[in-house]
C-alpha cells in the first residue's frame, strides 16, 4: 500500500510518501498506525499521542476521510495528516 504524509507528519517521518507491505493482520487504520510507528524514530514521533491522549493525526483511505476502525487493504492509498487548516 502507498502511504502519504502531509504537513508536520511529513517533516517528522522525513518522507512524503512510501510504499509498504504490512503483514495481513494489519487490516485497520489503527493497526496500520501502530505498525508504521515502529518503523523509525521519526515515525514514532509523528504518531505519538499527546500527553492528554488527544488524537492529533487524521487519516484518509483512498482520498476519503477515515476512522481508526476503517479497513485498509493492499493497493490502498492511505494518507496521514494533521487536522486541516485551509481557508
Amino acid at each position: 500500500m502507498k502511504i502519504l504524509y502531509f504537513a508536520w507528519l511529513r517533516e517528522r517521518v522525513g518522507l512524503g510518501e512510501e510504499d509498504v507491505t504490512p503483514p495481513a493482520d494489519i487490516d485497520t487504520v489503527a493497526r496500520l498506525v501502530a505498525w508504521l510507528g515502529a518503523r523509525s524514530s521519526g515515525h514514532a514521533a509523528a504518531f505519538a499521542p499527546t500527553p492528554d491522549g488527544r488524537r492529533l493525526v487524521r487519516c484518509a483511505v483512498n482520498q476519503d476521510f477515515a476512522q481508526p476502525n476503517s479497513p485498509v487493504a493492499p493497493g490502498d492509498e492511505i494518507a496521514f495528516f494533521p487536522p486541516v487548516t485551509g481557508g
Binding site: F6, A7, A79, F81, P82, V84, T85, G86, G87
Partner: peptide, 11 residues
C-alpha cells in the same frame, strides 16, 4: 466546510 474538510495546511 472548506476550512474543516478540505485537506490544506498552513505553515
Amino acid at each position: 466546510w472548506l476550512k474543516t474538510r478540505a485537506p490544506f495546511w498552513k505553515k
